[in-house]
């Protein structure tokens, strides 16, 4: 592990723009749902009417997730953003892992780093830490932006936590994938496939009795039931 900290600082230095756009983009995705919902349904009566129309729509549910507390602003935000936000977090984690593991190896850049006075596992440890920090920051900022908008603290925290944790799960999937295959591309393929299956499982599960949703990391996030209880 010697040198993991130095490598991590280096990762952050390299990725600062990339991290900024991923995180800002996802925060904006959540926050804009709050803004647009407020714009579309300015009164509680409008919200109630909209909720009644959406709650039974199987296509919407398959796409976004279980319809919960749709007659609240928070419920609407969670419903519209959670599945896609989880995917954004998952993709960010996947690209971060691929970029600092197999891609470094493919370009030969990792030789320069590995020939330095660092432990054999330091680059991988630094990558895992980077994903942890990026997803943590993303989740925290999503929560903070929604709280700042005026949504309940508990629900906003749950929604941010769900995004961050789902990102971490897929960061873990990507870390396993880069151990299984040698090329960055193949690792992205595996992680992407798992992500696709996770999305499909929760779609089928959400429309049905919900059992399949429990097999999906995206489903786990939604079962945090942000704003619903």
């Amino acid at each position: 592990m010697t040198g993991a900290w130095t490598v991590l600082r280096f990762h952050v230095r390299r990725d600062r723009m990339m991290l900024f756009w991923w995180i800002a983009g996802n925060v904006l995705l959540y926050w804009s749902q709050a803004v647009s919902t407020d714009g579309l349904y300015p009164t509680q009566a409008d919200l109630d009417k909209a909720a009644a129309g959406m709650a039974d729509n199987a296509a919407f549910i398959a796409m976004a997730g279980p319809a919960r507390a749709l007659d609240t602003l928070g419920g609407q935000v969670a419903w519209q953003a959670a599945a896609f936000g989880a995917i954004v977090a998952a993709l960010m984690s996947m690209f971060l892992v691929g970029r600092h593991t197999r891609a470094e190896e493919e370009t030969g850049r990792d030789e320069l780093v590995r020939a330095a006075a660092i432990g054999r596992h330091a680059p991988l440890a630094a990558t895992a830490l980077l994903v942890l920090i990026a997803d943590g920051l993303m989740g925290a900022l999503i929560a903070a932006s929604l709280i700042a908008y005026g949504l309940p603290v508990a629900g906003s925290s749950a929604l941010g936590l769900a995004a961050g944790l789902t990102g971490l799960v897929f960061g873990g999937v990507a870390l396993v994938a880069v151990q299984l295959v040698e090329s960055t591309r193949a690792a992205y393929g595996i992680t992407g496939a798992v992500l696709g299956v996770a999305y499909a499982l929760r779609a089928v599960g959400d429309v049905g009795n919900g059992a399949l949703s429990w097999l999906s990391p995206i489903g786990w996030g939604q079962y945090l039931r942000p704003y619903a209880d």
Partner: peptide, 26 residues
């Protein structure tokens, strides 16, 4: 003893690939 030994040596590969968005000094 890789990490220990690497304090005592420096390596230059034949085909040096660098991180495109960092400056040479960095």
């Amino acid at each position: 003893d890789a990490a220990d030994l690497h304090r005592r040596l420096a390596y230059v590969p034949g085909d040096v690939n660098l991180w495109p968005n960092l400056s040479g000094g960095e």
